[in-house]
């Protein structure tokens, strides 16, 4: 993406300079080795812990286990080629499709709310006449320091009718049968709220930081032209930080697909979360509860491909929208 853009200006210099000093030619040759030595730890770790597992997942996803006889003893189980069997099984499993559906709903609730609020807060922090900025900025960013498991745990208790302050308020208001926030219909909102709480501050900071990078002369010019603060925010600031908005949206969508810790942590507190609530929980169940690593591998590949597809589609669509006029 950015790689091609920011080729450091100094890059070409050692190469250009080497021939001028014949003595240095050996050093120049050695300089081809040095970067590889420096890259070696990264490349080795990448190969062992990313490339190899990804390849291994691919291989596994096209295999299955054949059990001969009673399936006892080490020789009775053999791996064979399964073709697309595992993929077909995943795609035709209503449980998997249901988990995808739930995560889509979860994402549709979470991503627009989170980015909308993050943008609103960032613009307010950047506005001239807003007070309590330092306090608000630190407070809203604070949840980023809280791991998803802990935040699910905190909110989980706040959702329990016996502990929750919300139910106390409902009681005071005279609403008696408010359904549990962890009931099947509402649990997706409950989980989305946890995601919102954990993510809004980080996205706000990313947007706010890119707002800070804009030279204020632009706003001054707009003010002299009579633009109101709101017009400046919507017509100037938002378009200027569009790249940051696109990236936060992309990362939020990818994170949405991978939701795992929140529903897993909440499970002990409610009956409305199945072991296959999200696609990753489905993968986990296949791999560890059912001991079916082959199906788990196929589903992992599907999720990874979906992630790539969504990333590329999204980038293409927004690029055409946002930068289409430039051509």
């Amino acid at each position: 993406m950015t790689a091609t853009v920011e080729a450091p200006s100094g890059d070409t210099r050692p190469a250009r300079r080497a021939p001028r000093h014949p003595v240095k030619r050996r050093t120049a040759a050695r300089r081809h080795v040095t970067p590889w030595m420096m890259l070696a730890p990264g490349i080795v770790l990448f190969t062992l812990f990313m490339a190899a597992p990804i390849l291994y997942t691919f291989v596994l996803s096209f295999q299955k286990e054949l059990v001969s006889g009673l399936g006892l003893g080490s020789g009775s189980r053999t791996r064979t080629f399964a073709g697309l069997e595992n993929y077909v099984a995943t795609f035709t499993d209503p449980e998997f499709l249901a988990s995808v559906g739930r995560v889509l709903v979860y994402g549709l609730i979470l991503v627009p709310t989170m980015l909308g609020l993050a943008l609103l807060f960032a613009l307010l922090l950047d506005a001239r006449r807003t007070g309590a900025k330092g306090f608000s900025r630190v407070s809203i960013f604070l949840p980023y320091a809280v791991p998803a498991v802990i935040s699910s745990l905190l909110w989980g208790f706040l959702y329990l009718p016996a502990v929750s302050p919300f139910y106390w308020i409902f009681e005071q208001l005279g609403w008696d049968d408010v359904p549990s926030l962890l009931s099947p219909g509402l649990v997706v909102f409950a989980i989305a709220n946890i995601g919102l709480w954990g993510g809004v501050g980080f996205n706000m900071i990313v947007m706010y930081t890119s707002l800070k990078a804009v030279p204020t002369e632009i706003y001054e010019a707009a003010r002299i032209d009579g633009a109101s603060e709101r017009q400046i925010a919507l017509r100037i600031k938002v378009p200027i930080i569009m790249p940051a908005l696109i990236m936060t949206a992309l990362f939020s969508m990818i994170a949405t697909l991978q939701v795992f810790a929140e529903p897993t942590t909440l499970r002990p507190l409610t009956n409305s979360l199945s072991t296959t609530w999200s696609p990753l929980m489905y993968v986990y169940r296949d791999a560890f509860t059912r001991d079916d690593i082959y199906s788990a591998a196929a589903t992992s590949v599907i999720i990874a491909v979906a992630t790539f597809a969504i990333s590329f589609l999204f980038l293409r669509v927004v690029q055409r929208r946002a930068f289409g006029q430039e051509d």
Binding site: L120, L124, T130, G131, L158, W197
Partner: peptide
């Protein structure tokens, strides 16, 4: 300005609520 400060403080309150709890 009061409105936007209030909105920002509401956001802060929301984020601090579980911590306070």
């Amino acid at each position: 300005a009061i409105g936007s400060t209030a909105v920002l403080l509401l956001g802060a309150l929301y984020c601090l609520l579980p911590v306070a709890w």
